[in-house]
Amino acid sequence: MSDTPAHPGLQHHVPLPGRAKRAIAIHRLLVSKNIVGPDEVRETIDRARRRTPADGARVVARAWTDPAFKARLMADARPAVFELGYRLSRDAELAVVENTDRLHHLVVCTLCSCYPTSLLGQPPDWYKSFAYRQRAVVEPRAVMREFGLHLGEDVVVRVVDSTADLRYLVLPRRPNGSEGMPEAELAELVTRDSMIGVGQARNPA
């Protein structure tokens, strides 16, 4: 390839699937007709890349250390996360569900791939996979065991099928031995998987 590609999607040497080429064609047409600005997609890609599970982890760590914040977060998440500088998408509201010693939430979207991207970034591939979407609602404990999470018989598993206009963030159980740790260190214990429910927060080293 000699000339520099002026377009995302064209610097690949591997053959592109037909639907990929058609998407690139659609984007070109939209730009050439001035329906979409030439830089809008690139800017949107850059913005999307800045959102990572570290954002959700900060929210969780604050909820662990500040009971009043946690109460506000559980009651109405949008203004609560905005206190930490996070602006949720206008398209969906956020609900936070809390994991405890007796109740464990696992989030799935059986109809598509609904996910709190405003706080966690893009979902992992497995979250969007047919196997996860099919199995999580009917054998959640077996699914969680594949992720290395073994829950006791005394814990109720509550699967959340996020089908519509609410996105769910799991507030994982605060690990034992984390008492007194500063918020920033607590956030390091909060994994992406623990905020989906296929894992727990890490134990402190």
Partner: peptide, 10 residues
């Protein structure tokens, strides 16, 4: 792949 970023952003 870049085209996947493109589609998501589009």
């Amino acid at each position: 792949a870049d085209w996947e970023h493109l589609v998501n952003a589009m």
